[in-house]
């Protein structure tokens, strides 16, 4: 099967650099799948599950925010955070979800606090759905 070259970088460095057969991730506009010989393409990423198919096997990760660009068949994914499924601490994600829900349940919180808690809840939900 044909492949394309994929690099995934975050602020903490390069997390994936190699040949892949397929990349699926969530953009601000919905899920996209990138296959070899994709046209030049650029979009911003949302929060969600991402997976990379390498040699017929899927590797799952939680990917939040950033940019996806395809240029001359080179695929670059620049993520705010990228966590492989095996690295996610499920207990921590659950704790974070409960904390966010508790904050949201209070009535006297400011708009800003609500926003932060919502973002935290979203991240926690993404993480715990991906962790096995």
């Amino acid at each position: 099967m044909s492949t394309f070259h994929l690099t995934v970088v975050t602020l903490d460095g390069c997390v994936f650099d190699g040949e892949a057969e397929r990349l699926i991730c969530r953009t601000i506009d919905g899920d996209v799948a990138i296959l070899p010989r994709h046209i030049d393409y650029c979009t911003a990423l949302g929060m969600g599950e991402a997976h990379i198919e390498v040699n017929g096997e899927f590797r799952y990760a939680a990917c939040m925010g950033g940019l996806l660009s395809v240029l001359n068949g080179e695929v670059r994914l620049v993520a705010t955070t990228w966590e492989w499924a095996d690295d996610i601490d499920k207990a921590r994600a659950e704790a974070s979800r409960r904390r966010a829900e508790r904050i949201l349940a209070q009535e006297d919180i400011s708009e800003r606090e609500r926003e932060l808690a919502m973002a935290r809840l979203k991240r926690a939900l993404v993480r715990s759905s991906i962790a096995k």
């Binding site: 953009t27 601000i28 996209v32 030049d40 393409y41 650029c42 979009t43 940019l67 240029l71 705010t80």
Partner: peptide, 27 residues
């Protein structure tokens, strides 16, 4: 030379990336 497809639109992509870019600069 490269005609790039931006989704949903180049403006939206640009505005979504800028805060990310600034965080990157600061970091």
């Amino acid at each position: 030379k490269h005609i790039i497809l931006y989704e949903p639109s180049s403006e939206e992509v640009f505005d979504a990336i800028i805060p990310e870019y600034i965080a990157g600069i600061l970091y």
